[in-house]
Amino acid sequence: MHKSDKPEKLAEFTAPGMDDESAKKTIAILDNRMVALIDLQLTLKHIHWNVVGPNFIGVHEMLDPQVETVREMTDTIAERIATLGGVPVGTPQALTERRSWEDYSIGKALVTEHLMALDKVYNGVNKDHREGIEQLAELDAVSEDMLTGQLAELEQFQWFVRAHLESSSGELRTN
């Protein structure tokens, strides 16, 4: 599968009551979200390993539950893709070919630097999840509901990150 290829519906079935075209469109949206969440869980673990400085331990320990929850989200999406007759492809090469964003560029760095970058990552993931929800409203209520529940958790994770970057007056540190 190349970057421009869209995931195909390969099974001769889909969820009862859903037509093949709606299934294909839903699978494509879910595939995009699956790739983003796999990337997010790896990025979170990378930050977990490379964050240093004041508040290190609090951030280090905050990230592992996020990794686990995002991993579960990824599994839920992959299983939904299979339920609709698609094939979830999560191999490293296939993932990098299908992603449309730049790799996380920070190595070992201070808490604030990582959290400012992670806030931007969450901006993109959450915005794209919201767009996926809007598209799914016309295609598949089950997948729409699934992404809606995930977005609630992802937005809460971003709030946790922002709490480390927010001043007492409510200003968000962005650089």
Score class of each variant (00 low, 15 high):
G86Y: 00
E102R: 07
M1R: 07
S168C: 08
F13Y: 13
R130H: 14
T96W: 09
K3Y: 06
K9S: 03
D103I: 03
K9R: 14
E138L: 11
E97L: 12
I133Q: 07
G132R: 02
M1T: 09
H60Y: 11
A94L: 12
P92L: 03
T26V: 10
M146A: 04
E131C: 07
G124H: 02
L172I: 15
L172M: 12
A28S: 14
H164E: 10
I81T: 05
V125F: 10
E79D: 07
D103K: 11
M62Q: 11
L42N: 11
G17S: 14
V125A: 13
Q135I: 03
H114A: 02
I77G: 05
V51Q: 07
S105M: 07
V70S: 01
I106A: 02
R33L: 01
I57Q: 15
R33G: 06
I77L: 10
F157E: 03
G58K: 15
K25G: 05
V59L: 00
N175I: 03
K3P: 07
T148L: 04
H164I: 10
E153I: 13
V70I: 14
K9T: 03
I27C: 08
K120W: 06
G170N: 09
N32Y: 03
P65D: 06
W49H: 08
I27R: 03
L139M: 10
D64V: 01
K108D: 05
Q41D: 06
A36V: 07
K25R: 08
N126C: 14
A15G: 07
L44M: 09
I77S: 00
W159E: 10
S169F: 12
K127I: 06
F13I: 15
Q93C: 06
N50T: 11
E72Y: 02
L154H: 13
K9I: 11
D20R: 14
V142Q: 09
V142R: 07
R162N: 06
T174M: 12
H129E: 06
G58P: 10
I27T: 04
E21R: 10
L37P: 02
D103Y: 12
Q150Y: 12
L42W: 10
